[in-house]
Computed example of a mutant assay.
Amino acid sequence: MASNTPTPRFAEGEDPRQLGSDTAALQQQGWALDAEGMGVTKTFYFKSYFKAVSFVNLIASESSVKKHHPTMTVRFGSVDVHWTTHNPRGLTTKDIAMARHCDNGAGLMGCVESGQGLKCGPEK
C-alpha cells in the first residue's frame, strides 16, 4: 500500500541530514510538506483582516531583504504561506529560515488557532 505522505526533496547542495531535522522541527510547529515534498506550507489565522495583511507585509519586508519570496494567499481571516526554492529546485535552508520568521512574526501579529480567526459574514 503506497503512502500519500510526501517525503522531503531537498535542493542540490543542501545537507539532507541537517535539513531533514530542521524540516521535522517545522512539522512539529504545524508546517506541512507540499504535495511534491519540495516546499513547506502553513495557514495562519487572525482575528482581523488588518492583522492578516500586516502579517503579509511583515513577510514581504523580510522576503525583500533575503531575496526569497513565498506564495501567499490572503483570506478574510487567514493567510496561507508556501515556501520553496526554484533554483536549485527543492527545499533549502532559506525556506526553513523564512518559515521560522513567519512563525515568529505570526506571534507578534496576534495569530490565533484555527476556528478563532475572523469569519466573513454577519456577526452572530
Results as ranks from 00 to 15, higher is better:
residue 118 L to S: 10
residue 81 V to M: 06
residue 79 V to N: 03
residue 51 K to G: 06
residue 109 M to R: 00
residue 50 F to N: 10
residue 71 T to I: 12
residue 33 L to P: 00
residue 81 V to F: 00
residue 68 H to G: 01
residue 32 A to M: 07
residue 37 G to E: 06
residue 7 T to H: 11
residue 84 T to R: 08
residue 71 T to G: 11
residue 115 G to N: 09
residue 93 T to M: 10
residue 105 G to C: 06
residue 54 S to I: 12
residue 93 T to R: 14
residue 57 N to T: 13
residue 122 P to V: 09
residue 9 R to A: 14
residue 15 D to S: 08
residue 55 F to D: 10
residue 62 E to T: 12
residue 95 D to M: 12
residue 34 D to L: 06
residue 111 C to A: 14
residue 55 F to K: 10
residue 12 E to L: 14
residue 91 L to M: 05
residue 109 M to C: 06
residue 115 G to L: 02
residue 64 S to V: 12
residue 56 V to L: 12
residue 40 V to F: 01
residue 18 Q to W: 09
residue 79 V to T: 07
residue 68 H to Q: 02
residue 11 A to Y: 05
residue 108 L to H: 07
residue 89 R to W: 02
residue 124 K to H: 07
residue 76 F to T: 01
residue 119 K to V: 14
residue 51 K to V: 05
residue 21 S to T: 10
residue 35 A to H: 06
residue 46 F to C: 07
residue 23 T to D: 01
residue 38 M to V: 12
residue 52 A to Q: 01
residue 89 R to H: 08
residue 26 L to Y: 07
residue 51 K to F: 04
residue 53 V to E: 04
residue 102 C to A: 15
residue 93 T to I: 15
residue 98 M to N: 03
residue 26 L to S: 02
residue 117 G to H: 00
residue 10 F to P: 01
residue 70 P to E: 08
residue 112 V to R: 05
residue 117 G to F: 00
residue 56 V to D: 05
residue 111 C to K: 08
residue 19 L to P: 01
residue 107 G to F: 08
residue 11 A to D: 02
residue 60 A to S: 13
residue 27 Q to T: 15
residue 93 T to H: 14
residue 86 H to R: 11
residue 105 G to T: 11
residue 20 G to M: 03
residue 88 P to Y: 06
residue 84 T to V: 06
residue 85 T to R: 10
residue 25 A to Y: 14
residue 120 C to S: 13
residue 15 D to N: 15
residue 116 Q to Y: 07
residue 113 E to L: 07
residue 23 T to C: 03
